[in-house]
Simulated scan of single mutants.
Amino acid sequence: MPFQNPSREQIGTLLQAAGNIAVVGLSDKPDRTSYMVSHAMQSRGYRIIPVNPAAAGQQILGETCYASLADVPDPIDIVDVFRRSEFCADVAREAVEAGAKTLWLQSGVFSDEAAAIAGDAGLTVIMDRCIKVEDAVTGAGSRR
């Protein structure tokens, strides 16, 4: 059976329950999509945890940036991935090890291997969807 994202209602419920979103590939450059989406989610009340080895130890959006998910000291509800599809299986393995609840691959990002790794470990998997758009459409962040 081909991969299918959760329903919009399920995504809304997932977002309402989420607090900490680790963003893998979050850029420190304000003109990048990862930064703009993360900034919008932060303004809606989510805590954004930057994960980018090139910026580890720096502050992005007022939060300490970590080199990997394994370095994040806090619980992770959602791992939001701004990486090319070929890197997602490794990110999925890290997400499982970090105890994340959801693996979210941004718009244009697909990986059946990552979906299988995360799904087999019990994580909810969402692919090819923008978290900012889904948050706005479902109204999940409006309660914050």
Rank of each mutant, 00 (worst) to 15 (best):
P73V: 12
A67G: 15
D77P: 07
P73A: 13
T102N: 06
M1F: 03
A55W: 03
D77S: 11
D135M: 00
V96E: 11
Q42C: 08
S85H: 07
P2G: 01
T102C: 15
A54M: 15
Q42N: 09
G45V: 09
R8C: 07
V79M: 12
A54R: 14
V37Q: 03
A70K: 13
P50H: 12
V37K: 04
I21G: 00
G45N: 09
G119V: 02
A116D: 11
A92L: 12
V109I: 15
A136V: 09
D135E: 09
M36N: 11
E134P: 08
D80M: 09
I76E: 02
K132F: 10
K29W: 00
L123P: 08
I48S: 03
D31E: 05
L69E: 08
L26R: 05
Q16H: 12
Q10Y: 13
F82M: 05
P2Q: 05
R83Y: 05
Q42Y: 02
A116F: 07
I131K: 01
P50R: 15
A116K: 14
P53I: 13
K132T: 04
R84C: 02
D135K: 00
G139Q: 13
P2E: 11
L105M: 15
L15K: 04
W104P: 00
A54G: 14
R44A: 00
A89V: 08
D77R: 04
A56T: 09
I21T: 01
Q42V: 00
V72D: 11
Q4Y: 08
A140C: 05
G62Q: 11
Q58L: 15
V81T: 05
S85K: 09
D74R: 15
G122W: 02
E113V: 06
D80K: 03
D71V: 10
I78M: 03
A56R: 12
S142P: 00
F82V: 11
G119F: 01
T124D: 01
T138I: 03
T138Y: 11
C65E: 06
F110A: 08
R47C: 03
D80L: 07
F82A: 03
L103A: 08
T138G: 05
M1L: 06
T33V: 13
A136G: 02
M127E: 14
I76S: 04
G99Y: 10
S43E: 13
S27R: 02
I60D: 07
D112T: 04
V81S: 06
D128N: 13
G57I: 09
